[in-house]
Design a protein around this nucleic acid. Structure first.
Length: 594
RNA sequence: GCCGGCGUAGCUCAACCGGCAGAGCAACUGACUUGUAAUCAGUAGGUUAUGGGUUCAAGUCCCAUCGCCGGCUCCA
């Protein structure tokens, strides 16, 4: 835990104390209830309970109301160190607390199961009628909690100690702030998050759909979503060609033998779909593209002179995800990775890593992301490959991050068993972070497939293999883009860039003539020739978040002009068609919002 | 997968304690021909997710399945 500023620390104590107040309110309602843990978290707090029945939204309202009363009663929060004996007596009918006591004393872990650095010490906090095994810190009196700045949010299931083999408890989430205004702001922010939810926007903007009868976690790209995807893919391909990649295509299924050799059947099978029988042989739908790229690598004897090889593929893979984890476009069962594999010599590895990192940042910046955070994951205890290779790979990763001057964290031992990696998280317009890019070394597959190249010395060598996906998956990336822009895509991505709005029927022919000129200039254009009023057409275009609206009536038709209104409601007004084309093309070229 | 909630017209939502399934928007038809965020009128639209059960009677109660939502777990 990083050190915290004083005020954060106060909010922290406030939230922690609010969770105790909530626990008191819940236990008053359910005297036989068992309490687990109740820490402060980002934006609020929670407490886990085992209760005789599921809580309802009405229960939450009552608990919240009771919390306000308890706060007004103004009990002190009293800290006290206790002996093991005392603690066991106080919590005699609280089995979860007893387990925590065991953990603190014997295993040296705190209430979250994290290792303790100081000597085990038992302490309790009393406030009102509630006593909790707790290290604190808390506010000194319940009155310090602002009763107008707390709100209970929802109830959810949560496993005791986060272990799916342990009992499922009821977790109540709440939020608490110093002032009512801060609470308001937080709730407003939540509303904004809801408004930008990609699951809502892809429906409203007619971009994608999911189908109960088609299967969960399988996305359907509608024409408008398809347009955006094409722009993304075209841009991606062009950048990859410029960046020294070759683009390849591979099948969607492969024989069991291939997945056996790659190790996927031994280590990844629970994420793969059942095999299909083709003339007596088992075939599997691919969960990854790597083995296919390796087969291509092995079609001929490779020389160090042709390395590095950079092979990219928009590869569609299928992975079994448990039903409960599916989430819109962010977690699906079939998706297209913007995958690539780099095969190179040890001498090339440093350059290649820096190159792919820069390439990734450039690509993400083009899509409007500028705030990056990098995680470097190093060698775990169980691993394959020689430590020297791990060391070299990790150093090349670290060096690349530092050369680029990016903030990063090291997850010691957090790498996959087959190699170290870096993940790039981007911050979106609402300050939320998303993991997109992953750059991973692989010391496993080159061994398993006995990949070699002939070196300068005429002998066989094992190439380095780097696996990378920059956008991650097109589905997920698209979901992030939708939320980042709130559906108002920058001009170059907008499925419809311009809507032409003839004021009356007699202007429709002119609108079509202008539309032809705009299409010829490469713009994506639609004419709204419905019998609606101009105001209604503008409203439709605004709701669809179309960047440019061109209104045309008698004045424009006579002058051969168009009258521009922007999505941001500004109205630059009348201009020639050529002027508008230049303006729009510039916005496209510069990837501007408008 | 687990805990809890939910599923009614294309969309957003009504329908009391079990008693004839309804509105707005969208769609379609007609009229209007409009100057920067919703013109008016009419028409059509449903095996209430699916399958079973209880009941004189089920959108409503019960069971199963599918899917979605909030979390947890998972994401070599």
């Amino acid at each position: 835990m990083a050190e915290q500023k004083h005020e954060e620390d106060h909010v922290h104590r406030l939230r922690h104390s609010a969770s105790h107040v909530m626990a008191q309110a819940v236990l008053e309602e359910f005297p036989d209830g068992k309490v687990a843990i109740g820490p402060p978290i980002e934006n609020g707090f929670y407490y886990d309970f085992e209760l005789p029945r599921p809580l309802t939204p009405e229960d939450l309202e009552e608990i919240e109301a009771r919390m306000r009363e308890i706060i007004t009663e103004g009990h002190d929060f009293v800290y006290q160190e206790v002996s093991e004996e005392e603690a066991r007596r106080i919590f005699a009918d609280q089995p979860y607390k007893l387990e925590l006591i065991d953990g603190i004393l014997s295993a040296g872990t705190d209430e979250y199961g994290e290792p303790l650095d100081e000597a085990p010490k038992l302490s309790i906090y009393r406030s009102g009628s509630f006593v909790d095994l707790c290290r604190g810190p808390h506010v000194s009196n319940a009155r310090e909690i602002n009763p107008d700045a707390i709100k209970l949010l929802n109830v959810a299931g949560a496993y005791w100690r986060g272990d799916e083999r342990r009992p499922m408890l009821q977790r109540i989430y709440g939020t608490a702030w110093e002032s009512a205004r801060q609470l308001e702001e937080f709730l407003a922010w939540q509303e904004e998050v809801e408004k930008r939810d990609h699951r809502r926007l892809i429906k409203e903007l007619d971009l994608l759909s999911f189908h109960e009868e088609g299967g969960a976690g399988l996305a359907y790209w509608h024409p408008m979503g398809g347009r955006i995807r094409q722009v993304i893919e075209d841009f991606w391909r062009a950048r990859h060609r410029e960046g020294g990649y070759e683009i390849v295509f591979t099948p969607h299924i492969g024989k069991a033998q291939l997945w056996q050799q790659s190790g996927h059947l031994d280590f990844y099978r629970e994420s793969m779909y059942s095999p299909m029988d083709i003339e007596g042989a088992e075939y599997f739908l691919k969960p990854m593209n790597c083995p296919f790229h390796i087969l291509m690598y092995k079609t001929t004897l490779r020389s160090y002179r042709e390395l590095p090889l950079r092979w990219a593929e928009l590869g569609t893979v299928y992975r079994y995800e448990r039903s409960g984890v599916l989430h819109g476009l962010m977690r699906v069962r079939g998706f297209t990775q913007d995958d690539a594999h780099i095969f190179c010599t040890p001498e090339q590895i440093e350059d290649e890593v820096l190159r792919v990192l820069r390439f990734s940042l450039d690509l993400l910046r083009a899509f409007g992301f500028s705030d990056f955070h990098v995680f470097l994951s190093t060698m775990p205890e169980k691993h394959v490959g020689e430590p020297e290779r791990w060391e070299q790979a990790q150093e090349s990763l670290r060096k690349a991050i530092e050369v680029e001057g990016l903030p990063y964290e090291v997850d010691e031992g957090g790498g996959a068993f087959y190699g170290p990696k870096i993940d790039i998280h981007v911050k979106d317009a609402l300050g939320r972070t998303w993991q997109l890019t992953t750059i991973q070394f692989d010391f496993n597959l080159p061994e398993r497939f006995d990949m070699t190249y002939i070196g300068e010395d005429g002998k066989e060598h094992r190439p380095y293999m780097v696996h990378r996906a920059l956008l991650g998956s097109l589905e997920r990336f698209f979901g992030v883009l939708v939320e980042h822009y709130g559906g108002a895509f920058p001009v170059w991505l907008a499925p419809v860039q311009v809507v032409l709005i003839p004021i009356a029927d007699r202007h429709v022919a002119y609108a079509y003539a202008v539309a032809e000129r705009l299409r010829a200039a490469g713009l994506r254009v639609e004419v709204d020739d419905s019998s609606e009023r101009m105001q209604a057409k503008i409203r439709d275009a605004q709701v669809q978040k179309v960047p440019y609206m061109l209104v045309m009536g008698n004045r424009e038709m006579e002058a051969g002009q168009v009258n521009l209104r922007m999505r941001d409601e500004s109205v630059p007004g009348a201009m020639s068609v050529d002027e508008f084309v230049a303006l729009a093309q510039e916005a496209v070229a510069e990837k501007r919002a408008l």
